[in-house]
Nucleic acid binder design. Structure first.
Lengths: 135, 135
DNA sequence: GCTTGACTCTGTAGTTACTCCAGGGTCCAT
DNA sequence: ATGGACCCTGGAGTAACTACAGAGTCAAGC
């Protein structure tokens, strides 16, 4: 076992977040209070790193903190019925699939713009249409 | 041409947003002021629907309003050099690809949980690990 | 062993992106 | 001609950060 231990600044760097955000997550109970050093500095370990990374990346994917909390609960599925886990997982799966489809549509359009650019000028741009309601 | 025209409430319903959010976007200049009816009601057309849909879905995918503005500018690429369009599009493309990869990892884990549930109970859950830094 | 600069602490105020009233006007089906 | 569902403006409230201020900690170098 790697007995990793880091300061709040290092954790922030590794999870691409701000120091203040980490303290904020601690305050609202999303991240467990870490142990403190003799000088009262927060000291984080591997599980803090994993959990915070999950939170930050989920947020970056457009999930609210409440949804992130639900996903974390799902992850720990402490004494839950399989039916409940199944229902919640399926709901999230549907949303994830929707997001993937939207991102792929956006991706195609960005790609096509870069392509067109390579050949001199941009003939057309449909990135707005990529995320518009299909009629 | 379909000469579509709708109230703010209908636009909200069609774009999965709140009436107040639309008025807020108008206030900060993200959405053009629509024409008004005799009774001072906002009246929206096809392009408002498209643009707002793009904004809402981009937001749902975790882009900030500033990023959305950049994408919209890119979409309209009024008198921009191809180099500029290319650079910005490539930057966004990289981020989009990252997001797709993360969502697919999350998707796999949710899928596997649903699978395990089907066969009685959950043996393991790795959704946190799915979005953790790979060591 | 003392300084100095980068980092941490708590607490509070500011920002972004909405969201929710209050108090009133409009529209239209009965 | 009236009740209910909608719209208007303006302002306050919420979620999720983000940025100080003022003070303490730590390790490197002299």
């Amino acid at each position: 076992m790697t007995n990793l231990s880091m300061t709040i600044g290092e954790l922030a760097r590794r999870t691409n977040s701000k120091v203040e955000t980490i303290r904020y997550y601690e305050k609202i109970g999303l991240l467990a209070e870490p142990v403190r050093t003799a000088g009262n500095y927060r000291s984080y370990g591997q599980d803090h790193l994993r959990r915070l990374s999950f939170v930050r990346r989920s947020r970056d994917l457009g999930f609210s903190l409440d949804q992130v909390r639900a996903l974390l609960d799902l992850a720990l599925h402490r004494d839950w019925s399989c039916d409940a886990v199944d229902a919640i997982a399926k709901e999230h799966l549907a949303e994830v699939d929707r997001k993937i489809a939207d991102l792929q549509a956006l991706r195609r359009e960005l790609d096509s713009m870069i392509d067109q650019c390579g050949s001199g000028s941009i003939a057309q741009c449909r990135i707005i249409e990529a995320l518009s309601p299909k009629e």
